[in-house]
Structure formats: structure tokens, C-alpha cells
Amino acid sequence: MEEPIIQARDLGICFAKGKQKKGRVKDLFVRRSANKKGAASDDFWPLRHVNFDIFPGDSVGVIGSNGTGKSTLLRLITGVLIPDEGYVRREGRVAPLIALSAGFSGDLTGRENVNLVGALHGMTNKEIKSKFDEIVDFSELEDFIDTPVKHYSSGMKVRLGFGVITQLPHPILLVDEALAVGDKAFKKKCHGVIDGLLKEGRTLVFVSHSAGELKRYCKRGIFLDAGQVITDGTVDEALDSYNESSEATAKRKAEKKKAEKAAEEARKAAEAPAAPPLPVEATT
């Protein structure tokens, strides 16, 4: 039986409200010790009791509303975040299309940053050199490749980052809203690159709010809500669950707003001063 390339078992991570999550080993032991004593009232779990297996060559869309733990899940898979409960295990390295300009040094040129980021992701000097022209051609930065990155626009940084990451030979591709930026021509190029990587047999975990993109790339969908896996099936099944949940949430909000309005009107009516009595006409 084929072994999963990514496996999550009872996966959970806890955040303290108003504090930045740390990934240091020291924090891991501090948090696990605190969890044994009981969670603080200002802690919340963006993900908890999450279980799934992803197999080589799978294309999985992670679906959910904002704040349901989609991006957090990708960061747990990469190892950027450390879980507080359970584990997530992967076989093979990850090519992360997440925060594409991360790792760039503003004082270094585009050329120097290609070498830096490529090396940080495990590419050898020979591999970087052989892929360099493709990276520059894709990013369309031939005239700026020797300019310090601090002078690049955000779009230029994203194009360069996308160009570097998609040249990584790693078997797992993680995409977090990477196609939500850039102009139409750039998005078309990105679609072509991802199509090519999937044909090579890469494993894809894809986060997007676009149903069209999810259906284009993904055969399977995982719908997250309230930090848990609600549906793990075809991408259509996951999208249907998401839409039903969104409609139910919108209905609850509308009903709550209506009840609050009625309560406010009743309160104002109760606090209104009583009308003065009508004058009594004298009789003879």
C-alpha cells in the first residue's frame, strides 16, 4: 500500500490572542507544559483534532472562510510553525508558494537574491546557474536583475519569488493565494507553470478563494471550519459544504441582527416618557 507523502494526526496549534506565534524549540516546551495545565482563557485554537493523509501526486484544495486555519495549516506542513498537539509529517522537501518575497534582502540585487533564496531552499550553485536564465525570463526582470531589490515594486518581487520557487525540484508544492496577485498576463504564465509541475507528478496543496482555480487544479478538497476538517472528499463536495456553511452563517447573522434591532426598539420604547394625560373638559 502506498505511503502518504503528508500525514496529519490529531494536529492542533494554539495561539495567544494579541501575541505573535513563535516557532522556537524553547517555545514548544513552554507551550506544551502550559497546555498540560489547561489553556488560558485568552488562547484560541485555529486548528485542532485535524487528521488527513495526502498521497504522492494528489492535488488537494484547502477551502474555508477567512480565519479558519488554511494558511496556518500550510505553515505547519512546511515546518515554519510547530504544533501544540499531534503531528504533521511529510516525506520530501517542500516548494512553498507562500509569501513569495519572503527571504529577499532589500540591499542585495535581484541576481544576488536568486542565489540566496535558491540556496536557502537547498539548490546547489550548479542548479541555480542552470536555472538562472529561466528565472529571469519568467520574472521579466532582465533590465532590473542587477538592481537592489529594495527598489522593486511588490509585483516585481512576487514575480522573482515565483520564478525561483517553481524551479525547485521538491516533490511537494504548497500554494497560498499566490495567484491572487499580478496582472492577467502574469497569472496566465503562473497557471502554465503549475500545470507543468502537476504533469510531472508533483503533490499539490492549494489554498484559494477562487472556485474556478480550485476546480482547475484539484481533484480533492478539504473544507475547514472552526479549526476542524468538516469535509474531505472531491473538490465539488468540499465546495458544496463550504457554500452551505456560508449560507447558514449568513442566515444566523441576519437573524441575530434582526433580533438585536427588535430588542433595541423595545428598550427605547420602554424608556420613552409616558404621554401626558388628555385634558378633561368641564361639564355644566
Score class of each variant (00 low, 15 high):
residue 1 M to W: 03
residue 6 I to K: 04
residue 10 D to E: 15
residue 11 L to H: 08
residue 14 C to A: 11
residue 18 G to Q: 05
residue 18 G to P: 09
residue 21 K to W: 01
residue 25 V to H: 05
residue 28 L to P: 00
residue 31 R to K: 13
residue 35 N to R: 14
residue 35 N to K: 05
residue 37 K to F: 04
residue 38 G to L: 08
residue 39 A to R: 09
residue 41 S to C: 00
residue 45 W to V: 03
residue 47 L to S: 08
residue 47 L to F: 08
residue 47 L to A: 08
residue 50 V to F: 06
residue 51 N to Q: 09
residue 51 N to H: 15
residue 55 F to E: 00
residue 55 F to H: 12
residue 61 G to R: 03
residue 61 G to L: 11
residue 61 G to Q: 08
residue 64 G to R: 03
residue 65 S to Q: 15
residue 66 N to H: 07
residue 72 T to L: 05
residue 72 T to R: 06
residue 72 T to Y: 06
residue 77 I to V: 15
residue 80 V to C: 01
residue 81 L to H: 13
residue 81 L to G: 00
residue 81 L to P: 01
residue 84 D to M: 12
residue 86 G to Y: 13
residue 94 V to Q: 02
residue 94 V to C: 05
residue 94 V to M: 04
residue 94 V to T: 10
residue 97 L to W: 10
residue 97 L to Y: 12
residue 99 A to M: 12
residue 101 S to R: 14
residue 102 A to L: 12
residue 103 G to A: 08
residue 109 T to N: 10
residue 110 G to H: 03
residue 113 N to W: 10
residue 113 N to G: 08
residue 114 V to T: 12
residue 115 N to D: 11
residue 121 H to S: 01
residue 122 G to Q: 11
residue 124 T to N: 01
residue 125 N to S: 15
residue 125 N to D: 14
residue 128 I to Y: 03
residue 131 K to P: 00
residue 131 K to N: 15
residue 135 I to C: 03
residue 140 E to K: 12
residue 140 E to V: 02
residue 141 L to S: 06
residue 141 L to D: 07
residue 141 L to I: 09
residue 143 D to M: 09
residue 144 F to C: 08
residue 145 I to K: 08
residue 146 D to M: 07
residue 150 K to L: 11
residue 154 S to R: 04
residue 155 G to R: 10
residue 161 G to M: 12
residue 162 F to D: 01
residue 167 Q to D: 01
residue 171 P to Y: 05
residue 171 P to A: 06
residue 175 V to T: 04
residue 175 V to E: 05
residue 178 A to Q: 13
residue 181 V to C: 05
residue 183 D to P: 09
residue 183 D to G: 07
residue 188 K to A: 14
residue 193 V to T: 14
residue 195 D to S: 07
residue 196 G to W: 05
residue 197 L to S: 06
residue 205 V to I: 15
residue 208 S to E: 10
residue 209 H to A: 11
residue 216 R to D: 12
residue 218 C to I: 10
residue 219 K to R: 15
residue 220 R to S: 14
residue 220 R to C: 13
residue 222 I to V: 14
residue 227 G to P: 06
residue 228 Q to K: 14
residue 229 V to K: 02
residue 229 V to T: 12
residue 229 V to M: 04
residue 233 G to Q: 11
residue 236 D to C: 03
residue 236 D to F: 02
residue 244 E to R: 15
residue 245 S to M: 06
residue 256 K to V: 00
residue 261 K to P: 00
residue 262 A to C: 00
residue 264 E to P: 00
residue 270 A to P: 07
residue 274 A to M: 12
residue 275 A to Q: 14
residue 275 A to G: 00
residue 277 P to T: 04
residue 281 E to T: 13
residue 281 E to M: 14
residue 284 T to E: 14
